[in-house]
Design a protein around this nucleic acid. Structure first.
Lengths: 212, 212, 212, 212
DNA sequence: AATGAATGAGAGTTCATTCAT
DNA sequence: GATGAATGAACTCTCATTCAT
């Protein structure tokens, strides 16, 4: 490093980001009400007062956490929506595994727990999650199923229900990891679940003539 | 007033039960920390002090709520486990619909939300739920799947994963109702989901020779 | 006292009244912002939390203090207004002394200090004091002066200003007692000031023909 | 840029003075405790930290404000004291109007409000105001009255009380302006009050033989 | 000299818990 | 058993003060 390089200096670059990170941890462990600002501040490595330099209230911080946790997932959903329009079986074999990958990468587990647990106290956050993320993803899947049905690839049946059937085990796998694994339950390998589930579902969804 | 007339007197028969009922409502709406004993007492129609005649602490009441919410479900699981050992397809066509019926009858939605949301704060309750209910139900399903595989009725594949695949959409339907329907999302008809899901899964699970 | 008389029992009769009393002391010593609820509670002999059984916020308590301090004075002003319509000199010799008596009886000094000091932060309280008390009293005096002028008893001049001239030394006497006496200044005997002031003012106000 | 050019540079000539000015505004609007250093700094056009370059603490700044607000008034009182020793009536006709002029010129209203409102919390400031300003002025008036009594110009009576009677309406006029005019009350024209009051008081104070 | 991000003690407020009645 | 007024510990939030830059 050259002379004149920034010496040891307090990085104030991404204080808000660090705080949101810490808050995500604590909120998803404890829920909104049981989370203490002391602990969030301590994990972020700042004083309690510093939180108020960036967020007006505890609720404000909570909202920031939940909302910013949507962003990376939206990218993923967009990518999925833009997926190639090949045969339905190909699409299906691709998508759930991709989702499984995301679920293991992003800290989505904790956030899902928070959204479910606090939906009653923060309905507007449940709405944001639904409108911007969940409904988008479910809608994209539904459209793909309906298109495949129109092409005669998929048996009759409610396409939105088909879409939900496809996603549900992945979601349950994540919730399971958050809820029961910490108390000793065996985890589900979400990727493995995805593979087996796609094959099973394909077996039940594909029309006779479309069998690979 | 006449002697022996059935006095219009408040039944104090099942005070604890009424309190647990009220507490179930409030806890499942708000979560543990945000629930206020004032409100529970008000909904139960008793004074705040009266709660302490039956429960030592707020946590104690919460535990009572979560634990007693297991009981009726355990019955259902027992019944399911005892189900007749006919062909797998028959069993499957029976079980999920029965579960769907339970999910709509019992106030299981709110409890599921609570258990998920408070698992971090009350791990022992998550454990109780897992050990006494979830693992039992999943284990029973797993055994049935494995048995059917042994009889050659069901394709190879991880039986525990199959079991989870079968249940997941029902669970997601319930969570969806608790989380997103109140903010305007369209509900899933859990019974209809169950019917479609069983047919789809059967299509993918049954071995060639076992097709009905 | 007969048997069955109430034994030693916690008087919960006038808790709010006792709290307001204590709050009046502390608020008038410290002002609104510097007053601490701890101290108010301590002086009222209750816990800090008990304040919130009767008042929603600190502001709420402050308002209650300032508003209830108006009531007894209003009585006095009413009585003064109803004063007999004899010659102006008789009226005047009566009124200021009566006011002086009130000023020494009621804890009006501290309240006046509060109203002046917090008028900027609680304008609605200044308004209430003005409308319900100060303007009433000043208006009554003004009317009496104007009536005496109409009868030719009092020299020309702005009657509202005359009214204020008459009251001002009493008010200053009270403010002086609150502000400078505690730091060593000699007090003014408000009653003596009232007597001397009335005579002086009468000497300057009465028309030639009305001299006694 | 040219050498010697009058750089467009912020005058840092009288930073302390500007800060005290700003602090005077805020303290007299809000009182000591409710005033925020943020706001004082903002109004002074400096950073919050800069305040501490000139004043050790908030109290220190407050003291500076109250003390420096005395200075200009002291000049006025000195001038009044040095007033010519003509007939009492001439003196009196001169002095109150001069005071009225001062009261409208200097920001004395806000300071008076502060001194009254914070006397309980800062008794030493009340003492400074009393000793250096109020007692001086009152003493000078008292001496003038006593001298006039000795010359037979003024009727018997307590000279200190006479002095207070003379000043009181002016003070009340100023307090009224600070307290009740902002909430809609009609103001008093302090100069007009002074004129009428002097004439009224002279009518009551002058001995028979001294009537002009 | 000057900044303003950061601190932390202290305030108002809430609410599970107690206890005299 | 039953009440509800009362408690006090613990929380969120504020703001005078500090200090690295």
């Amino acid at each position: 490093m050259l002379a004149g390089a920034p010496k040891f200096r307090r990085r104030k670059a991404d204080r808000p980001g660090e705080i949101v990170q810490a808050a995500l941890q604590v909120f998803s462990e404890k829920g909104f009400a049981a989370a203490r600002l002391d602990e969030i501040a301590a994990r972020a490595g700042v004083s309690k007062g510093a939180l108020y330099l960036y967020f007006e209230t505890k609720e404000d911080l909570f909202r920031a956490v939940v909302e910013q946790a949507i962003a990376p997932n939206i990218q993923a959903v967009r990518a999925m929506i833009a997926a190639h329009p090949g045969p339905f079986a190909d699409l299906l074999r691709l998508v759930p595994e991709r989702i499984a990958g995301l679920l293991e990468t992003l800290p989505v587990g904790g956030v899902v727990k928070m959204v479910i647990g606090e939906a009653g106290n923060f309905p507007e956050l449940a709405r944001v999650w639904h409108d911007r993320l969940v409904a988008q993803a479910l809608g994209a899947m539904t459209d793909a199923v309906a298109a495949a049905q129109a092409r005669g690839e998929v048996k009759p049946g409610d396409p939105r229900t088909y879409a939900m059937q496809l996603i549900a085990p992945l979601l349950v796998g994540v919730i399971w990891r958050e809820t029961f694994v910490p108390v000793g339950a065996a985890a589900f390998d979400v990727a493995a679940v995805a593979r087996q589930h796609v094959e099973t579902m394909l077996g039940g969804m594909l029309a006779e003539g479309a069998r690979s």
